[in-house]
């Protein structure tokens, strides 16, 4: 399969272009967040500069709430991920191991639900949320985010649990293990990769979600993307350095996470969409 030197050079060049297209906007924001304010718009842009933390300091002074909003994002993300994984593991196990008309119905329902545009549920939910007095709470976002990913996660867990030989469960059963012990001692450890794959998607979604946060939070549960959009939309003109500092703090951890969890993203996509 060795190709000629010229073909290799072309491929390397194309790959370099693709990497630039993908990474340039991200690196631009991260690097610019450490640039002195007057150099942010220098032309042509230069990537040689002595780094400064002035924008981070100003972010701390001018938008102190940003850090509690980051904490909100973290709480909501962890909550939604745990809720998704717990419910998806329970449901995925039953869907992997049993067949019945009811299960065919619930499984099909989960596929249909993934096709519906999330925006439409905001209209009926809005009055209900106010009536329940859960507007602007972490719990509300946790439940909404988990619900939009529980079907994909269940699907992923089902695919991973199906690969675990039934004999292992039967052996545990003979040894006197109940359903709960089988789940905790046999299924969960052996489907750990599925748990990670199912987590990645809801975790990235919850950390980055904008629309539901815009509709359903006003103050105490506000998440980081919403505040970044507010910094972007201030009437007295955009403070780019401060904005880049906030965006960098929000995006660095999740980019690192996605790159580290790369193989789970691939596995999850394969289990969740292609095989259906």
């Amino acid at each position: 399969m060795r190709s000629s030197l010229a073909a290799q050079a072309v491929r390397a060049l194309l790959a370099a272009l693709a990497v630039v297209w993908s990474m340039f906007p991200i690196l631009l924001v991260v690097l610019s967040s450490f640039k002195e304010g007057h150099r942010i718009f220098e032309t042509p842009p230069s990537f040689v500069f002595s780094p400064t933390l002035e924008h981070y300091v100003r972010l701390w002074e001018k938008w102190p709430d940003f850090f509690s909003n980051m904490a909100n994002s973290l709480i909501v993300t962890i909550g939604a991920t745990l809720l998704t994984v717990a419910t998806a593991t329970l449901g995925g196990y039953v869907h992997a191991r049993y067949r019945s008309r009811l299960l065919t119905g619930t499984a099909f329902m989960m596929i249909v639900v993934r096709m519906l545009p999330p925006i439409v549920v905001t209209l009926p939910l809005f009055p209900a949320v106010n009536w329940l007095r859960i507007h602007d709470t972490h719990l509300l976002l946790v439940v909404i985010y988990a619900t939009f990913f529980v079907s994909l996660a269940t699907w992923i867990m089902k695919a991973f649990i199906e690969r675990i030989p039934r004999e292992l469960e039967e052996a545990a059963f003979v040894d006197g293990a109940g359903l709960r012990q089988i789940l905790l001692r046999v299924i969960l450890p052996l489907s750990a990769n599925g748990v990670f794959a199912a987590s990645v998607f809801v975790l990235v979604y919850s950390w980055n979600e904008y629309f539901f946060a815009l509709i359903f939070t006003t103050r105490s549960a506000k998440t980081a993307p919403l505040v970044i959009s507010e910094i972007l939309s201030t009437v007295e003109g955009v403070d780019w350095g401060l904005l880049f500092a906030a965006a960098t703090l929000q995006l660095l951890p999740i980019v690192v996470f996605v790159v580290a969890a790369q193989r789970y993203v691939v596995a999850g996509l394969a289990a969740g969409s292609v095989k259906g």
Binding site: S22, I26, L28, P225, L226, L251, F257
Partner: peptide, 19 residues
């Protein structure tokens, strides 16, 4: 590198392109 934009919130993407 090709996967990285998947981790970016729409809000930050707008920030980058508007800049």
């Amino acid at each position: 590198a090709l996967l990285a934009p998947y981790a970016i919130t729409e809000v930050s993407a707008v920030v980058m392109w508007r800049y």
